[in-house]
Computed example of a mutant assay.
Amino acid sequence: MNKKLVKEVKKRYKTQFNTKPEMVFSPGRINLIGEYTDFNEGFVFPGAINKGIVLAIHKSHTDTCQVHALNKDETYKFDLAAIEPLQNGGWRNYILGVVAEAQKRGHNIDNFNAVFAGDIPGGAGLSSSAALENSFIFGLNELFNLKLSKTEMILISQKAEHNYAGVKCGIMDQYASMFGVKKSALLLDCRTITSEPFQINLGKYKLLLINTNVKHDLSESAYNDRRAVCEDVSNKLNIEALRDASKEALNSIKKDITDEDFQKALYVIEENERVKLFSEAIQQDDLETLGKLIYQSHHGLSSQFKVSCEELDFLVDATKDNPNILGARMMGGGFGGCTINLILEDEVKKFKKEVSKKYLEKYGKACSIYSVKLSRGTKVIKK
């Protein structure tokens, strides 16, 4: 958690609203393996990180709510009695969605003022939207004593994403942000919404993120398209979700679906299996196997599920002949964002220099590189 950011948010709140606020931190997340398996009720392996959203929030004595986005220097006022999704609403829709979904469930929310800011790199695929949603529902829960459990809170955040941002996401991002455990990743069962924490000990290796600094327009529509494909294949197999599918069953309907849809469904089945193998390899401190599974995951995302892009593939390919890197893959929704790399700590500096130069030469723009630590989930910031 960025202490400087906490001070800035608190100071701005006091200046703007002349009151001492409640303070909340909600982290972004990485996902070690298991992409696009969450809405298929499968398994994923995320962890909360030490970058996120800092929120200052308190009750208001006016007849509207007022929220200030510090990073953008934008203020938005709204009436609790007339909440609707905004066209091109951006960050506003996540907050409106959280409030509206809480109201739908009969929770009494009064007017409030808020200031928030984040240090999650934009478009990096680290779930800034889930962190923002979680920070607000957590803050509102504290402020108005809504008595919501953490599970209820993440379901409200997820519905906000569905109904106000238009992205039919699974539960992984909200779960990891809310339930994160320090120095651990969570083996999350997205059907039961339960998880098992695994302490991550990478020895001489560390996780390095490389941001392509691109976000292709396909991302949101492609996400919903692929969800529709998975649901269609599940219906043809007469199962609840692809979590329940086997390769044999999928082969039995191969003639009834396009080859593209077959490959997408096959990817999900194989990725689910990779998540389970990944958890076993962690227990055995088998870093070589972790790396191989990470590379396999990227191959599936790029060649079968087709959610990668040229820039992501370039960054992954740039690692393959490097003996100091055990694995690399795209992370998140794809079509831009980050790769996650398992690299020998002593070689980070040299690799950063090499890959930055290659990327700049190839695309005429810089990539961004940063390290993250696995952290606790959403929490009140102690005064």
Rank of each mutant, 00 (worst) to 15 (best):
V9C: 02
K10F: 09
K11Y: 13
F17Q: 05
K20Q: 15
S26F: 02
R29A: 00
I30C: 08
L32P: 07
I33P: 05
G34M: 10
T37H: 04
V44E: 02
G47N: 07
K51R: 15
K51V: 08
G52A: 06
D63C: 05
K77W: 06
L86E: 14
L96P: 08
I109Q: 08
A114I: 04
V115L: 09
G118C: 01
P121T: 01
S128P: 08
S129T: 04
A130D: 04
F136T: 01
N141Y: 07
K147S: 13
L148Q: 02
T151I: 13
T151V: 11
I154H: 08
S157V: 04
K168F: 06
M172R: 09
S184E: 11
L186P: 06
D189K: 08
C190E: 00
T194C: 00
S195C: 12
Q199C: 08
L202K: 11
K204L: 12
I210S: 01
I210L: 12
N213Q: 14
N213S: 06
S219T: 15
D225A: 14
A228N: 09
V229Y: 03
V233N: 00
D244A: 15
K254T: 08
K255S: 15
D256I: 10
F262C: 03
Y267A: 00
E270S: 03
E271H: 11
E271Y: 13
N272D: 07
S279Y: 09
T289Q: 13
L293C: 09
S297Y: 04
S303A: 12
Q304A: 10
A318T: 08
T319A: 08
P323C: 03
I325N: 11
G337E: 08
C338K: 00
E347N: 13
S371G: 15
K379C: 13
V380N: 14
